[in-house]
Design a protein around this nucleic acid. Structure first.
Lengths: 352, 352
DNA sequence: TCTCGGTTTACAATCGATTGCCAAATCGAT
DNA sequence: ATCGATTTGGCAATCGATTGTAAACCGAGA
C-alpha cells in the first residue's frame, strides 16, 4: 500500500504538506502543490480512510439496521436514506437483523465502536436493549418506522393507530360487518399491533366485534400472509373483509383466496398497508395505505445529522400520517343491504 | 471513549495483557484474566474497530456494490450474500450505484482504501474502469450477475445466452411465431443483451424473424416495462408472445396489456426472468426463469474468501443455469393451427 | 547588517489498538 | 542453593493518517 510518506518522499516534502494538499486545510505554495499532486498521480496514492477516521474520530459512514431488505418497504427506505445521506457526504452501511434479536445486538456491537458516526435503526422490539446499547456508547441514534419504549431517543414514525382506525372506518363505510385482520406478532413492534389496536377500537365503537379467531398473527412476509389467510378460511368466522398489516401479506392473502375460489373484491375485500410495488401488480390491485417514505427518511436523516453535529436537543418523536390509496381490492360486501352510494344516496341492491 | 489503557489502569495490568484477554491470543493467568474482565465490564469497554483494523490491515467487512437494492433480485442477492458472509465472520456493506456510473466509481474509491477487505460488485457496464480500479488497488474483487470484459477478475454469472435460447424454444414450442422482447440498454450489462442474443439466434434458426420494432429497450423497472409494452402495442407489429428480460418489466407489461384489454395468456403470452416474488403475485402468475441465487451467492462469497486468504489462482468464470419455471402467463397463441397436445398428439382447434 | 512580519514547511505527538521481543516470576529437579 | 525450563507480563514499535506548535525562509525597511 502506498502511504502518505511515500508521496512525501517522492515529492521531496513532508507528510504534513501532503496532507494539507489532499485536504486543502492550509495554504500551500503553488509549486509545492504541483510537486505533491504529481507524486500522488504517479504513485496512485489514496488516503487510507481507516487511519483518517481513527485520527479524526469520524468515519463519514452512517449505519442502517433493518429487519430485512427484501421487504419492499425497507428496500425503499434504504434507498431513500442512502440517497439523502450521500448528498450530505455520508456513505450508508446497510445491515439486516433478519428478524433475529441476537443478530441485531451483534450488529450494534460491530457498528457502534468507531465504524459509523450515527445509526438509523428499525428495531425488532419496542422494548429492546439495542437502543440502550447505542445510548450507552454515546452513538447518535434515530429510531425509524418502529417505536421504541425509550424516551431518550429520537423517533420517526407514522401514526399507526390512526391508520388502523382509518382502515376500520373505510371498511365500515363500505358496509362490512364481518371483518378479519392479519397482523404481526403481538406487542413487538408498535407498528402492526398499533394498527390492530386502532382498527379494533374503531370497529368496537361502531358496535362491530373483532373476534379472536378473526385475527391471525403472521410474519410480514408473502408466504406467511398466504398461510394466515388459509387459516382464516378454515378456522375463522365467515368474513367479508380482511385488513392485512402489510402489502406482502395482503398479496399472499389474495393468492390464498383465489385458490379457495373467492373473488376479490366481489366476495371478500382485502386491505393492505405500505403502498409498495406489490400493491400495484397484484390483481386486483391493492387498496392500501401509503407509507410517507420521503417524509420518514428526510426526518430521520436530518435528525441524525443534527445529532452528529452535536446538537443535543431533547429527543423528539416525529409523526407522519399514512393516507389511504384506493385501488381495486375493496368493495361493498356481497349481500350488502346498506346503501351503496357514497354520501348517503340510497342505492338498493338486488334484495331491495 | 473508554480505551484499552483505561481498562489496563483499572485492572492494574498493561494494555498488552488486556489485548490478549480480549482476543485470546496468549495464555493469561486466571486471576489476571478475571481482573481484566471485571474492569471491562465495569467500564463497558469495547475495542475500537478502526484502530484494530488499521493495525491488522483488515476490517472484516466486505463491500457489496449493486445497481439498486429495490430490485427484488438484487435484494435477494444482498440478503443471501450477507447471510453467508456473516457465517464467515464478515459484515457486509451494501451500496447502491443507482444505475449511475459516477456513483459507482465514487463508491469504489470510498470502499477500496481500507474500509473493506473485499468487494462483490454487479457492475453497471461490462467495459468499466470500476473493475480496473479495484484491481489497481489490489482489492480482492468478484464480479457477480454481470459479465466484465476484464479477464483478470473472477466472475460468477448465469448463462444468459442459453437462457435466452431456452426462452425462444419454449415460445416456439407453444406455437408462437409473432414474438417480441423487452430488454435492457444495448451492450451494457452482458445480461439482458445476451439473453436477447440467444433469443434472437434461436428464433432465426427456426425461421422466425424478430424485427427491430418488436424489440424495446427499457430499464429493468416496473414502470419501464409498462411503458415498453405500451410502445410495443402502439408502434410494434402484432404479437402473440413477449419475452421480458426481468419480472418487474414483465409485471409492468401485464398491467399495460390488461389496460389495453388483452387477456394473458389467452390473447398474448408473457415470459419473465428472475423468478422473484413478483412472478408469484401477479395475475396470471408469471412463467419465468429461476435465478440460481443460492449458487450465485455461494460461489461469489467462497471465491472472495479465497481471494482474501491470499489464494491467487488464475481468475475463473463460474457459470450457472437458470431453469424455466412454468406458471400461468404463457400458452399457445390464440389462433393456433398447430397441435396443442404435448407430445405430438394432435388436438385440432376450432378451425380444424 | 539586522530585525520584523508574513508565508511556507517540518517536527513530533496523537488517535486506539496489536504484537515481536525480552524480562521477570515461578517451579521442579538435582 | 543453583540451574534450566516454562509461564506470565510489559516495553515500545507500529499501522497511516491529522494537527498544534515552532522553525525556516524571504523581502522590506531601519
Amino acid at each position: 500500500m502506498v502511504t502518505i510518506y511515500d508521496v512525501a518522499k517522492k515529492a521531496g516534502v513532508s507528510a504534513t504538506t501532503v496532507s494539507h494538499v489532499v485536504n486543502g486545510t492550509r495554504t500551500v505554495a503553488p509549486t509545492t502543490e504541483k510537486k505533491v499532486r504529481d507524486a500522488i498521480r504517479t504513485l496512485k496514492y489514496r488516503p487510507n480512510v481507516l487511519a483518517r477516521s481513527l485520527r479524526q474520530s469520524r468515519s463519514n459512514v452512517i449505519g442502517l439496521l433493518l429487519p430485512d431488505c427484501r421487504n419492499p418497504f425497507y428496500a425503499e427506505l434504504a434507498r431513500s436514506i442512502e440517497e439523502r445521506a450521500y448528498k450530505s457526504g455520508y456513505s450508508v452501511m446497510i445491515c439486516n437483523s433478519s428478524y433475529n434479536q441476537d443478530r441485531e445486538r451483534e450488529y450494534v456491537e460491530t457498528l457502534a465502536n468507531g465504524r459509523v458516526d450515527g445509526l438509523i435503526v428499525a428495531p425488532l422490539r419496542s422494548k429492546s436493549e439495542t437502543i440502550d446499547a447505542c445510548r450507552d456508547r454515546g452513538l447518535p441514534t434515530v429510531v425509524v418506522d418502529r417505536i421504541s419504549d425509550s424516551v431518550l431517543v429520537d423517533q420517526v414514525v407514522i401514526n399507526n393507530e390512526y391508520a388502523g382506525a382509518q382502515a376500520a372506518k373505510y371498511l365500515l363505510k363500505l358496509g362490512h360487518r364481518q371483518i378479519g385482520c392479519i397482523t404481526y406478532l403481538e406487542n413487538w413492534t408498535a407498528t402492526a399491533d398499533r394498527r390492530l389496536e386502532g382498527f379494533r377500537r374503531t370497529l368496537n365503537e361502531a358496535g362491530v366485534d373483532l373476534p379472536d379467531d378473526a385475527v391471525v398473527y403472521s410474519d410480514f412476509q408473502f408466504l406467511g400472509g398466504q398461510a394466515a389467510m388459509e387459516e382464516l378460511l378454515t378456522k375463522g368466522p365467515i368474513l367479508t373483509a380482511v385488513f392485512a398489516c402489510n402489502d406482502l401479506m395482503a398479496a399472499g392473502a389474495l393468492i390464498a383466496l383465489r385458490r379457495a375460489g373467492f373473488r376479490v373484491p366481489d366476495d371478500i375485500s382485502v386491505l393492505g398497508f405500505d403502498n409498495s410495488i406489490e400493491a400495484v401488480i397484484t390483481s386486483p390491485a391493492l387498496t392500501t395505505f401509503s407509507q410517507p417514505i420521503a417524509d420518514l427518511c428526510g426526518a430521520s436523516v436530518n435528525q441524525l445529522l443534527q445529532l452528529m453535529n452535536g446538537e443535543t436537543n431533547r429527543p423528539r418523536r416525529h409523526v407522519f400520517n399514512a393516507p389511504l390509496v384506493e385501488r381495486e381490492s375493496c368493495a361493498p360486501p356481497p349481500s350488502n343491504t346498506k346503501p351503496r352510494g357514497k354520501a348517503g344516496v340510497a342505492v338498493m341492491d338486488s334484495k331491495g
